[in-house]
Computed example of a mutant assay.
Amino acid sequence: MTSTAHTDLTHIADRWSDLREMLEARTPRTWPPAGRMSDHQRDLDDALDGIEVVDQQAAAERAERTPEK
């Protein structure tokens, strides 16, 4: 019966050269890529702008329906 720790350590030992290469790389890969992230943030901002417009319209409609006291 092989322990999980033994299996994990064996896997690390087998991949040691790959791990060392990644640590020594000059420019590590980032996720998400910068271009995609800025697109995603712009899409979120556009969606939030749309929600604010809808909220303002709903508030104006409520104000019109609410009787003055």
Results as ranks from 00 to 15, higher is better:
2 T>M: 12
3 S>D: 09
3 S>M: 06
3 S>E: 07
4 T>I: 15
5 A>P: 03
5 A>M: 06
6 H>A: 12
7 T>C: 10
8 D>C: 09
8 D>N: 09
8 D>A: 14
9 L>S: 06
10 T>A: 15
10 T>F: 14
12 I>K: 15
13 A>N: 10
14 D>G: 13
15 R>I: 11
15 R>W: 10
16 W>Q: 10
17 S>R: 05
17 S>L: 06
19 L>P: 04
19 L>N: 01
19 L>S: 04
19 L>M: 00
20 R>G: 02
20 R>W: 01
20 R>M: 00
21 E>T: 05
21 E>K: 07
22 M>Y: 03
23 L>V: 05
24 E>N: 12
24 E>A: 12
25 A>Q: 07
25 A>H: 06
25 A>R: 01
26 R>Y: 01
27 T>V: 15
27 T>F: 13
28 P>C: 03
30 T>L: 12
30 T>D: 12
30 T>C: 11
31 W>L: 13
32 P>V: 02
33 P>M: 07
33 P>N: 05
33 P>T: 08
34 A>V: 05
34 A>Q: 04
35 G>H: 14
35 G>A: 12
36 R>I: 14
36 R>Q: 14
37 M>H: 11
37 M>G: 06
37 M>T: 08
39 D>C: 03
39 D>T: 06
40 H>Q: 00
40 H>I: 01
40 H>Y: 05
40 H>N: 02
40 H>G: 04
41 Q>L: 14
42 R>F: 05
42 R>K: 02
44 L>V: 02
44 L>R: 09
45 D>K: 05
45 D>C: 07
45 D>N: 10
46 D>W: 02
47 A>M: 00
47 A>L: 00
48 L>P: 00
49 D>Y: 04
49 D>V: 01
49 D>W: 06
50 G>W: 05
52 E>K: 14
52 E>C: 07
54 V>L: 11
54 V>R: 09
54 V>S: 04
55 D>N: 14
55 D>A: 15
56 Q>D: 11
56 Q>I: 04
57 Q>F: 04
57 Q>A: 06
57 Q>D: 08
59 A>R: 11
60 A>T: 09
60 A>E: 09
61 E>K: 15
61 E>F: 15
62 R>M: 01
63 A>Y: 01
63 A>K: 04
63 A>H: 07
64 E>I: 10
66 T>R: 00
66 T>S: 02
66 T>I: 06
67 P>T: 00
67 P>M: 04
67 P>D: 02
67 P>Y: 05
67 P>C: 02
68 E>M: 12
69 K>L: 10
69 K>T: 09
69 K>M: 06
